[in-house]
């Protein structure tokens, strides 16, 4: 999906893929309630991308992260 809005320009490569669950629509027929997200394919290429993203995280990031108490 191509977008031309300001946010899409800023975030560049992110493409928001939508699988809408409309909170005001009724089921279209038997079995629809079984159509949730499928069990993640644990050996798919996209999982590798996620693992790459995770490996880039600084192991000490949380240690360095300090906030004041909020509400």
């Amino acid at each position: 999906m191509k977008r031309t809005n300001e946010f899409a320009q800023m975030i560049g490569s992110l493409d928001r893929k939508e699988r809408p669950v409309d909170p005001i629509s009724k089921p279209s027929g038997p079995g629809e309630q079984e159509s949730g997200p499928k069990r993640p394919e644990t050996d798919s290429p996209s999982r590798d991308n996620l693992m790459k993203r995770m490996r880039k995280v600084d192991p000490k990031q949380a240690e360095k992260y300090r906030q004041r108490t909020g509400e």
Binding site: I11, S13, R19, V21
Partner: peptide, 19 residues
């Protein structure tokens, strides 16, 4: 969006959208 892990999942179509 280039770092967040949730956004990584979303970009790969693994999240369910309401909006």
């Amino acid at each position: 969006p280039e770092r967040g892990l949730f956004f990584g999942l979303e970009a790969e179509g693994r999240t369910t959208s309401i909006s």
